[in-house]
Amino acid sequence: MTSAGPRAGRRLPRAAALGAPLGALLLVVLVWPLVTMALRSVSAPDGGVHLGRYVEVLTSGRYAESLVFTAVLALASTVLALVICVPAGLYLERDRTRTGRGLAVAMTVPLSLPGIVIGFFIILTVGNTGVVPTLTEAVTGERMLQISYTWAGLLLGYLYFQIPRVVLVVRGAAGAVRPEAVDVARSLGASTATVYRRVVLPALRPAIASSAALALATAFGAFGTAATLSRGIRVVPLEVASAFTDAFQPELAATLSVLLAVLTTVILVGVGRLGEARVQGRPA
């Protein structure tokens, strides 16, 4: 944790100088563009302000459908990633042997891969001329697992980018699960399922909440993976791109972007907060 010196309160001018570049960047590159976007989304053709576009988007079948689809995809990939990564992350923090380290690296490296490359991995593995269908055809005469442009392929791609994110948060918090507590539970005759339910999951609750928040927000905002893999399945970030580039309706794109950004921010803050202990007050 950080600490400030006793005389820190008197060094405000210096603090301002250190923080000024970041403040300026955030104003120019983040705040003003977001404000512009929000203003464009509510601008009426006659120069006034109206909320018609939000009503339109939220009541239109097309966007409601893509919103539901995005939510289902985000939720499903997050749950799958948690199911895989909570036990795996716990194991990786305990096992310092070469195998454990190697597995940890394998699960972390995808963090550096952009969504489009992950999408291509799925096309290449289970796409129409992908490796698995081609090999199974050569061996059994039947093309198997040709799923890349379907719902399952998209889910697989999302799972791919969720795994490293979730596992890192879990590994960072694995110290909260005391090995002694696990040993005691086992010596009292608890089954593996009971150990998870009564010892592991309660201790990891904050980490599970914050990694779920991160994973959900990432999935809602994911563009590259969906752009590469989606054929006809439209998630919200794709609708933003198509409203701007195909339909050239910047106001509509702005409306969708504002909705998406509000959604991801609320998820990131809200879901993460679920895991915080009640005793902690709300941040000032």
Partner: peptide, 25 residues
Amino acid sequence: AGPGAPAAARDSAPSLPDDVVRAPA
């Protein structure tokens, strides 16, 4: 919450992936 939870809450509360990432357990 389990015994270690409040401490972990501070360390892994909604934050950048990399706070958690680059800080070992």
